[in-house]
Amino acid sequence: MTEVEYHPKHELIREERFPHVWCPGCGLGIELQCYLNALEKSGIPQNNHVLVSGIGCTARIPGYANLDTYHTTHGRGLPFATGMKIANPDLKVTVISGDGDLFNIGGNHFIHAARRNMDLLVICSNNFNYGMTGGQHGSTTPLTSKSASTPYGNIEPTFNLPYIASALGASYVARWTVMHPRQLTKSIRTAMDVKGFAFIEVLSPCPPNFGKFNGFKDGFEEMEFYRKSSVVQNDAKLEDISIDPFHGKDIVLGDFVNRKRASYITLEHELIDRIRGGGQ
């Protein structure tokens, strides 16, 4: 039964690079698979898909996808993707990066890309800490939880990512965990057709860092924790869905926002047509 064959995603991954760099129990591989599943179903040719990332564990995802992939500097995936999308609007540009990359060092870029309603799909993998550097706390670390740099417990409130994205005017906002691969795939698939800024937060376990510091024995326990403490509520009031699981609060998941709002590329092309005298 274990004869050597190609994985069904053979055409979509760089198989010669496997096994990948991520730790046992890391959810990023699942995230990559969900993205590739959605890509297959999107109907957009594989050649038109581009993956861009910043720096971090999540930012290594593009390196394993058999697409045109760009691994840039820490926090700068979004502006890089912005430039690329404007220069070639035919591309379906997806930015896939971690919470630290997109919201700490790259927070300003996120604010502005969402405000512009830039035609990008942003998948933010949230593992509640800086994984690659050894599990230090960041802006998404839940209150009172421990990390390599909050040994006495975190005293800083966290970002509520879907609320931020929605307040900035993103066209599409969702939150899932890697324990919900089918819902996540469907969400990414929907977001690929969205005109404007689409944002999906994906909660993912980080067993050797966040998990270890907060009493999870292994990745499976952390996955079970996500499964047990999450509820799906698509019409949730976004201001109430900040993540605070260690004080008995449910993690609210769902496709929260899907609205029509003029995207940057549409408006820019209208402007160019107007200036050039009716679309030459």
């Binding site: 994985h7 096994p19 599943n37 890697v178 089918r182």
Partner: peptide, 11 residues
Amino acid sequence: CQSICPDFAIF
């Protein structure tokens, strides 16, 4: 198993 495998190790 396939969709939950982070390592593309099973299908």
